[in-house]
């Protein structure tokens, strides 16, 4: 089963990289950008007998390693 995990900074957590990208977009002439937040994507291939099992297992991976839940949120998207 294929899955995609999104890891993003929690609201209110300072994102110096996002701010720099925002500044770069502005200097390239993109004026309509109000804010940029940078995150990570993980594409996983997992063995699981059901979607529920896959999702539960990936949630554990996120809690233990993929996300630092002090500063980051995660969401899981299962594909076929």
């Amino acid at each position: 089963m294929n899955a995609r995990v999104f890891v993003t900074l929690k609201n209110g957590v300072l994102d110096p990289q996002g701010k720099a990208i925002e500044g770069a977009l502005d200097s390239l002439g993109f004026e309509g950008v109000d804010a940029v937040r940078q995150g990570k994507i993980f594409d996983l291939k997992v063995n699981a007998s059901s979607k529920e099992e896959a999702e539960a297992e990936i949630a554990k991976m996120c809690e233990k390693l993929l996300a630092n839940t002090v500063i980051e949120n995660y969401s899981i998207e299962l594909r076929d």
Partner: peptide
Amino acid sequence: LTEAGLLPGALMRNRDL
């Protein structure tokens, strides 16, 4: 030590990158 939960908070990219 922060990643291991022995100390609170997190260390992020320096303000000026």
